[in-house]
């Protein structure tokens, strides 16, 4: 793991355009510069269509920028090929999505185990790590349940357990509470806060102020540009 405060993610002049039709395009990001250090808890905020999801996808190596430099642990990964990016996603990034987080009709255990299958972790170690991760999010008793037989809050807990399973450098959560009631949403945010308190870097995308207030830093993005990047003075816990 990179030592605390070392720069983990560094985006410079990131431009992302999506083609529309033959000769038109949509500019989702328009020169974004962001630096996220190890151990930070950052909330990226913005209205619908602001480009915050695109930004998260680029940070998470799910997408590549049209222009700009994208450093991850000091390496410019902007031009990496898909398989190389898949390795980074597997080992360095843990994702928590708003929807379609878990593989349908697979057990909770199998869902959490899955990244380790791609990471080549031996079977005995996989079992131990899955149970540890499920205990860390207080859902070990649901290990054998099918993923479509648990509640929305439990799904997000399982998703967090899966995100942690490869001991990644950063957890990226895209509207992780968007589908949950307030109480459950706060429980999920408390889990993420606790992980951050233990030194894990957490980046969340949200459009809700109260959720963003769990983070230590808030970045606001509008029309593909960062309009504010400040420490969160109202931080909840």
């Amino acid at each position: 793991m990179v030592k605390k405060d070392a720069v983990l993610i560094n985006l410079k002049g990131i431009i992302k355009r999506y083609p529309i039709g033959i000769d038109d395009f949509c500019q989702a990001l328009n020169g974004v510069d962001i630096s996220i250090s190890q151990g930070e808890f950052v909330a990226i905020m913005g209205p619908s269509g602001s480009g915050k999801s695109t930004l998260m996808h680029i940070i998470g190596a799910l997408d590549t920028p049209t222009k700009g430099k994208q450093f991850f642990k000091g390496k410019n990964i902007a031009s990496y090929k898909e398989d190389h990016l898949a390795e980074i996603r597997n080992k360095e990034i843990g994702f928590v999505f708003q929807f379609f987080n878990l593989l349908p009709r697979m057990s909770v255990f199998e869902n959490v185990e899955r990244p380790m299958l791609y990471g080549g972790v031996p079977i005995e170690e996989r079992k131990r790590r899955v149970m540890d991760a499920l205990e860390a999010v207080s859902i070990a008793d649901k290990a054998k349940n099918l993923s479509n037989h648990i509640s929305g809050g439990q799904i997000q807990r399982v998703a967090i357990a899966r995100a942690l399973i490869m001991d990644p450098s950063v957890i990226l959560a895209d509207e992780p509470t968007g589908n949950l009631d307030t109480k459950t949403a706060y429980e999920i945010m408390n889990i993420l806060t606790e992980l951050n308190n233990k030194g894990r870097t957490v980046v969340i995308i949200t459009h809700e102020d109260d959720i963003a207030n769990f983070a230590k830093r808030k970045i606001k993005i509008v029309d593909g540009k960062i309009v504010s990047n400040t420490k969160n003075k109202k931080k909840q816990s």
Partner: peptide, 16 residues
């Protein structure tokens, strides 16, 4: 398709 997206997000390579 979404399942494939999720598998790729958690580290599945092309050959997987």
């Amino acid at each position: 398709t979404k399942e494939i997206g999720l598998l790729k997000a958690i580290g599945a390579k092309r050959k997987d």
